[in-house]
Design a binder for these strands. Structure first.
Lengths: 166, 166
DNA sequence: ACGCTGACTTTGGCTAGGCATAGCCAGGAG
DNA sequence: CTCCTGGCTATGCCTAGCCAAAGTCAGCGT
């Protein structure tokens, strides 16, 4: 017997692909390196264009382009603000939807810490209350911790009928 | 005090960027669309080259290239297998490290379901035992559910001393 | 021994996306 | 009213990545 993991997830039937797959759709929004890194900066607290662009290390043009896409996708919001003695500026803040991408970002962080060796520094996410390291863990709405092979993936047609006039 | 969510994460000091950031390093491995989609296929149970490539919808060349990278990064392993009456083949199986990317993939899935509208079908990950929907949730090693502002992000130098002869 | 099939590899052409540099614009400071 | 600064926008070049199509290769079946 070689290894235990067969198909990991329980996938009884074929799932939709292409633009019908929510994973693919999400990747259309945050599927590029600059986009994810901008998100990282936003989670680190950056709000101003310069800080975001600088932190990611891309040119202004790319930063502007990606930020525009993230705003269009509803991940970030552009809001006016004013520092005392300064003119009105705009800052980029995470929306509710943006905040919900935190598990993904921290998942990448945790994986990189564990498996992408070579960095001379390590970044740790820990629980402010107890100091223990934090990671995304699979849980169901009932509050059970879910193992990989207990995850059942199913597809369903959305809104069968009711295509009434708006 | 304008909005409630200020910096979401608690980040007391600057974090390393570029290739010193584990998020960035992880993106170097799975930071492209085809790579993530190949991973999706692997989680769905695909193991053969053709199935993986077909499921992602890219050309053979791209699939081969990305698979090679994923193998090199230790996410997939190439193993020989033999179906009865068939010649020896190789299949791609998720390694331990590969399996640990599941929270990221399911995070993308969950987010897409909730925020990337437009698909006519929905994919749901549910708990096989109780049927409730499954999502990645932030938890610390002590077992506490961690809220966003209770996540403390800190950097540390790896291997403090031992900077002996190079 | 030959052919077929699955699994790649190679080649050539094309497009998206990146960078650098420079230019533009708004608006408080002076 | 002009200057200055942060925040973009525009231009030109250059590379990475993609696709399609064709070629290669291993080895079981006949």
């Amino acid at each position: 017997m070689p290894v235990q993991h067969s198909a990991s997830l329980a996938v009884p039937a074929a799932q939709p692909r292409g633009d019908q797959c929510p994973i693919d759709r999400t990747l259309g929004v945050v599927g590029s390196r600059p986009a994810l890194l901008l998100l990282r900066e936003a989670f680190y607290g950056a709000r101003r264009f310069d800080d975001l662009a600088r932190g990611v290390g891309v040119s202004d043009a790319v930063a502007a382009q990606r930020l525009k896409e993230l705003v269009a996708a509803g991940v970030l919001e552009k809001e006016p603000y004013q520092e005392p003695g300064q003119r009105t500026r705009h800052e980029y803040v995470l929306t509710e939807a943006g905040h919900e991408l935190l598990p993904v970002v921290l998942g990448l962080l945790a994986w990189g810490e564990r498996h992408a060796a070579g960095a001379r520094t390590s970044i740790t996410a820990s629980h402010a209350d107890c100091g223990a390291p934090v990671e995304p863990v699979l849980m169901c709405a009932e509050g059970h911790r879910v193992a990989e092979d207990d995850v059942l993936v199913t597809a369903a047609r959305r809104q069968p009928a009711r295509q009434s006039a708006r």
